[in-house]
Design a protein around this nucleic acid. Structure first.
Lengths: 202, 202
DNA sequence: GTCTATAGAACGATAGAC
DNA sequence: GTCTATCGTTCTATAGAC
């Protein structure tokens, strides 16, 4: 899904911090893909030269990791928290609320982490990292050992990234978005509205 | 689909046709992304040289178009068919069944068409093409003029690509997959099971 | 229809001046 | 902390032999 180019968050050539670099890189990653975004393009967008970027990050992979690391860590936390829930309903609910919060907080970072092959391969290459894909994958397998049962969950986790690609949707209030996402997830995963406790039907 | 298959589809360096080229390119596109897949990599995978690829396609963009064109055309047909339905329920149902059929028939092509930024930009650049994104986008707007109402539909259309990334899911029978996808979509979009008629609640 | 060889541009990344 | 300049590699794409 395409992403609306932001109205140009240009910054002064000198004195730019990692904040703006992250934001600019993320915007281009979401728009052109990580592999399709060159260091030159990021530098041009910021009004600096390529060499300035390599002062802050020793490689492109390093920059990509810097951009996706925050949401990666939080996703891992959501999975861990869900692991400790007893019962399928409670685990699904934890995933539901956790992922919705993640999407709202990180927006396009969610799509980049979930959909961009460059990121998947980069994280898998770093063996220190647990490899988020196998992490998410093995979690899903535990929640739904039968492959057919995984489908709604995977549709939801993957589908969450799409709506925010629509500018009109992205402009909605967080409260409205949260309610819509949660409702969609509850219907898809067939979750009762208040199932926070540990008692489940399973 | 009346595709003229050569009686002997051998995979050795010489004699490989566009069939194998499409299949090989698609596999790499799905795995590494279009921007991250070089002509060299495709050639290596097929056991031929780069130059051989440029005999069949005059450019990389041309190859990409060749790979995604079939599903692109069919997606456009699904949208057109849905446009002629009267009532929101009937339109949603048409989209639901059409997209599910598309995913099952084209598999990873669906994910590449929907998720890869290279493809979106390529199709948008060709003004002869309607631009599939604006096409899908404007259709969604017609079905759900309120942005908040679009969310479930976009979650579904975008989310359909995810489950088939799991090998265990991809190995399931088409019939099982179809049933799971349709059930997921009906719950998400709140579609009655037999809503083929034109009467709706709206 | 595939090969070898290569052109010309763009890539990630580095060195050294300021 | 950013610059200019450049290195070595890889990219898409082409030319010409077979």
């Amino acid at each position: 899904m395409g992403v609306p180019m932001a109205p140009e968050t240009r910054l002064r050539p000198h004195g730019a911090g990692k904040q703006q670099l992250h934001a600019t890189a993320l915007r281009l990653f979401a728009h052109t893909g990580v592999a399709g975004t060159t260091m030159q393009a990021i530098a041009d967008e910021m009004g600096v030269t390529k060499a300035a970027l390599f002062y802050h990050y020793k490689s492109k992979d390093d920059l990509v990791l810097g951009v996706v690391a925050p949401i990666f860590e939080k996703l891992a936390a959501v999975l861990t928290k869900a692991e400790f829930r007893r019962g399928r309903q409670a685990q699904l609910n934890e995933i539901l609320t956790g992922c919705v919060d993640l999407v709202l907080e990180f927006r396009s970072q969610y799509a980049v982490l979930m959909n961009d092959p460059y990121v998947s391969r980069l994280l898998a290459r770093h063996e220190e990292r647990p490899g988020w894909e196998s992490r998410v994958g093995s979690f899903i397998v535990r929640v739904a050992s039968d492959p057919a049962d995984r489908i709604p969950l995977m549709v939801f986790i993957g589908g969450l990234a799409s709506p925010l690609g629509d500018p009109a949707v992205a402009a909605l209030d967080d409260a409205v978005l949260r309610e819509q996402f949660l409702d969609s997830g509850r219907r898809l995963l067939q979750i009762r509205r208040r199932s926070a406790g540990e008692s489940t039907t399973a």
